[in-house]
Design a protein around this nucleic acid. Structure first.
Length: 250
DNA sequence: CGTATTTGACCCGCGC
DNA sequence: GCGCGGGTCAAATACG
């Protein structure tokens, strides 16, 4: 199922509003980026997210924890050009829903709290990112000759989802899109990043409907407005830690 | 037998 | 208003 071989990273795209973003954890330090097909244990995502952060982190206004081997997304998108980043990644997001604009627009506020995408060269479709996923759907999409697979984090109460599909332009690449933020640790993961501040109790994101009413409750993906204050505190904590770290190193 | 996957159907939002 | 396309559900099936 999961794979950890034959990976090379190309690009990834960005988180976007609303403001529930947090630190996205990945299980192990990434290998050095390389054009060569690296052979290493998971995860596929790590290196690319890290690379991406270095490339776009400032524009995104993201916070990077001292010694963080993962990616800490900003509480809200700071960059103005999310679509261009998507284009850079060779994916088009939802296709129907704008990646920018007021939260709750698009399809009735069903937009996930945060989204990170990867385009990874891999011989296999499913990349081992340290989390356990359950497949819940498969769909042929118009924009690609390859089917899109839908996965949900199998951890109880964790509503994170991911979509996996082969790049329509180059089938050697797998486009993986994560929706939401894990509220738990990855099994067996080694975290280098501080945990984000605890999310406040959030309201269900989906509008009430007959369908949604009978569906299982999933972990809320949207943070309450007060979350930004919590993030500020967390960021300050990171800055303090960074300062302390630099002082102690001399 | 329990769990994971498959797959057709359904729902919803958007564009025309 | 209608059709299209994407996302999800849930019963059926496969697998260990």
């Amino acid at each position: 199922m999961a794979a950890s071989l034959g990976l090379a990273h190309e690009a990834c795209y960005a988180a976007y509003p609303p403001a529930a973003a947090a630190c996205s954890y990945f299980p192990s330090p990434p290998p050095p980026p390389s054009d060569l097909v690296a052979e290493f244990p998971p995860p596929a995502a790590t290196a690319m997210v890290d690379d991406y952060y270095f490339q776009f982190g400032q524009e995104m206004g993201g916070a990077r924890a001292p010694g963080c081997g993962g990616y800490c997304s900003p509480p809200a998108p700071v960059f103005d050009d999310g679509m261009s980043l998507l284009s850079y990644a060779g994916v088009e997001g939802d296709g129907r829903r704008p990646m920018s604009g007021p939260a709750g627009t698009g399809s009735g506020g069903r937009r996930p709290a945060s989204r990170i995408g990867f385009r990874t060269r891999s011989e296999v479709d499913v990349l081992d990112d340290g989390f356990k996923w359950r497949k819940y759907g498969k769909k042929a999409v118009k924009s690609s000759p390859n089917p899109r697979n839908y996965y949900r984090c199998s951890a109880e109460g964790c509503g994170v989802k991911k979509r996996v599909e082969r790049d329509s332009d180059d089938p050697r690449y797998v486009v993986t899109t994560y929706d939401g933020v894990h509220n738990h640790a990855a099994p067996g993961a080694t975290y280098l990043c501080q945990p984000p501040p605890p999310p406040p109790p959030a309201q269900p994101q989906r509008p009430a409907s007959r369908l949604h009413a009978r569906r299982r409750a999933s972990a809320p993906l949207v943070a309450a407005p007060s979350w930004s204050a919590a993030f500020d505190a967390w960021e300050a904590q990171l800055n303090a830690a960074a300062a302390h770290s630099s002082e102690s190193s001399y």
